[in-house]
Design a protein around this nucleic acid. Structure first.
Length: 287
DNA sequence: GACAATGTTACAGT
DNA sequence: CACTGTAACATTGT
């Protein structure tokens, strides 16, 4: 998924539809997608939905939590009698439940009444995603949360960013995508932020001076704010909890634009592999 | 058939 | 032990 803006968009949706409600049943269609004892979360009120980097945590009143990572192709889709007329994007979602549905949560109704078929579907084409039951006070013991670095909009300050960047010997792009170093940035926004900051993705992190670091830090915030405004990026399978797409993919600066003209100078955008990921940049603007 | 896809993680090597 | 780079996970679409 979805990177920080997409996960945050999902979090906001879950917050709106799940908080105050209870899960009455859990149907696990793919055992690998769900870890722990599902009974721990049945019939306890959902009190909060939190996000850490690209991870989501659903907290229950009984001090249990459901920790979630939807990786690249996970979808969390909520349906009830009020939202069923909102048209979901069939090309991204398909039937519910469908071929890629891994876990189904049956909820009490939005009004607290039973029998209105409020349901949360966890779809995951590639099955990389996971859901784990944990005690709420032990969420940060899970490896993903334990190792997560500071993140934009939270504890990542400009000064801290400069410190992290100036210490690293690896290239700047894989560095800002390393969740242990900085939380929440993935391939789309790493590419676009570096373009906005006019920094070549291959540059060694250490080689950036503090002015370049500041510009990059601001660029990261800017591209993610922009994406949040558009409800995230639906280049691939991402949809929000209502099954509708985001719009940032139509506003990317360089991501996915190989061969197209640079917005600044008109040169052709190039694509290279860096740290195993497709990397897009303007060879003239990004030195 | 080859290759790439929003992400993490295991492993090998330095 | 810390850091770095690459392969692997599973599936689909081009």
């Amino acid at each position: 998924m979805p990177e920080l803006p997409e996960v945050e968009t999902i979090r906001l949706g879950l917050q709106k539809y799940l908080v105050g409600h209870k899960i009455l049943a859990v149907e696990i269609l793919n055992p690998k997608s769900f870890e722990g004892d599902k009974n721990q979360i049945l019939a306890s009120k959902i009190i909060d939905i939190r996000r850490f980097g690209k991870g989501i945590v659903i907290d229950f009143e009984n001090n249990n939590s459901l920790a979630i990572h939807i990786k690249m192709t996970g979808q969390l889709i909520y349906r009830d009698f009020k939202t069923k007329n909102i048209s979901i994007d069939k090309s991204k979602v398909g039937e519910l439940p469908g071929k890629h549905t891994r876990v189904v949560f049956r909820l009490d109704s939005p009004a607290g009444r039973v029998g209105k078929n409020a349901t949360l579907y966890f779809n995951d084409l590639r099955k990389f995603g996971w859901m784990k039951i944990v005690k709420t006070n032990e969420v940060d013991k899970l490896p993903f949360f334990k190792n997560l670095g500071p993140e934009p909009f939270k504890d990542l300050t400009q000064d801290l960013f400069i410190k992290i960047v100036s210490k690293s010997k690896i290239s700047i792009k894989p560095l800002i995508m390393d969740q242990k170093k900085i939380g929440g940035i993935g391939n789309i926004y790493a590419n676009d932020a570096l373009f906005l900051a006019r920094i070549n993705p291959k540059r060694k992190a250490k080689s950036l001076d503090s002015e370049e670091c500041k510009v990059l830090f601001k660029s990261i915030i800017k591209v993610m704010e922009e994406s949040l405004k558009y409800g995230g990026s639906s280049e691939n399978t991402y949809v929000n909890v209502l099954g509708t797409t985001g719009d940032y993919q139509r506003h990317t600066l360089v991501y996915g634009k190989k061969g197209e003209k640079c917005k600044n100078c008109g040169s052709e955008i190039e694509r290279i592999m860096l740290g195993g990921r497709g990397t897009f940049f303007c060879p003239r603007c990004q030195k």
